[in-house]
Write a protein that binds this DNA or RNA. Structure first.
Length: 105
DNA sequence: CCGTTGACTCTTT
DNA sequence: AAAAGAGCCAACG
């Protein structure tokens, strides 16, 4: 375990395919922790917001959440990736991504 | 080491 | 539906 907490977040995040989204809680769980908020912090400090798909991370209730470059921008990007957004919300049951084999990240 | 903060989440009003 | 409370944990000063 040499990677820092945020690096693990980014690495895991890169597994989310285009057109799909995940949640802070899902990432935390995949990392075997309950640090939902720490995940958010990691995203906030994300060095390259577009290189790492942090825009594909939303809240567990389907709301967009927040974004360092602005929520509107985040919504725009998601739409561009083919995700339909209804009234500031995403249908997770339709676009949600399930992580697998999160060991050894 | 302790207290605060935060792109969170779940439960209870 | 909307708000409030409690719980979680890494990072920072």
């Amino acid at each position: 375990m040499t990677l820092s907490f945020n690096k693990r977040c980014y690495k895991l995040l890169k597994k989310v395919p285009r057109g799909k989204v995940t949640t802070y809680g899902a990432i935390a769980k995949a990392l075997k922790t309950k640090a939902y908020r720490a995940v958010g912090n990691a995203m906030n400090k994300n060095p390259f917001p577009l290189k790492v798909p942090c825009h594909r991370v939303i809240k567990s209730n389907g709301e967009i959440g927040d974004f360092s470059l602005g929520i509107e921008n985040k919504i725009r990007i998601l739409k561009r990736e083919g995700i339909k957004i209804k009234n500031r919300k995403v249908d997770i049951s339709k676009y949600g991504h399930y992580f697998q084999n999160t060991q050894n990240l």
